[in-house]
Design a protein around this nucleic acid. Structure first.
Lengths: 120, 120
DNA sequence: CGGGATCCAGGTGGATACTG
DNA sequence: CAGTATCCACCTGGATCCCG
């Protein structure tokens, strides 16, 4: 209960919250999180849903999310192998934020492209 | 007014909204946007506020944001030189989202570190 | 003061091949 | 099916120097 750590502030170079932001900013993290919205989903289905992600990167992204406590991994003892991923409570808490980023990117795409074009 | 472009969907590999998300995910973009919250701010002040960013990266980040229509640049004809940056309407519209990401990262840092530690 | 130009180390992430 | 391992091309971004 001790307040032994100061309030995190991402403006400070040494603040570990920067690592968290960096992780969220990694190439596939946000898309994978949003793809986990409907609930438990298999690796293959996820792979198909997030177009263009390689097996390696999907696997790595999921491992990172699992390490950070945002995703749980459940292996089913079946043949062929079946592995499902789902969001934890922590993962669900960030979902509205990354989903908002994704929707904003989609909804404002035209305006951004217009801004780029207006500049040549 | 023609609906000549399909609805953007970042799950699709070819969707340009991925570029927008990627840009927001670039190392300094979110922090710079949040740093612009109070209003017009000079390059040097921004440089001091976002600890650890190099001149090159701050400059590049601001140029990108300007290209995308999220920031405007205003040069004052003074000696020594004075340049101010401020958010556009588009920039202000994304601000709540990236600020939420920053605050979530700060507020859930302890829990994430705990998840990592619990794993060794 | 506010950058642009250059150089370069290191990291990111894709392709491919292999495994339980 | 669901990964891991390896190799490597590219890009990000930091350091440094220079300029209006």
């Amino acid at each position: 209960m001790a307040a032994d750590t100061p309030k995190p502030d991402a403006f400070l170079a040494a603040c570990p919250s920067r690592d968290v932001m960096a992780r969220l900013g990694e190439k596939w993290t946000m898309l994978v999180l949003v793809a986990l919205t409907p609930g438990a989903i298999r690796f293959g289905a996820l792979h198909r849903r997030v177009e263009g992600v390689s097996q390696k990167m999907l696997s790595q992204t999921l491992r990172h999310l699992e390490e950070d406590g945002m995703v749980t991994r459940h292996v089913f003892d079946e043949r062929p192998l079946k592995v499902e991923y789902k969001l934890t409570e922590l993962g669900r808490s960030v979902l509205p934020l990354v989903d908002a980023i994704k929707r904003w990117s989609e909804e404002n795409l035209a305006q951004i492209q217009a801004a780029r074009d207006a500049r040549g």
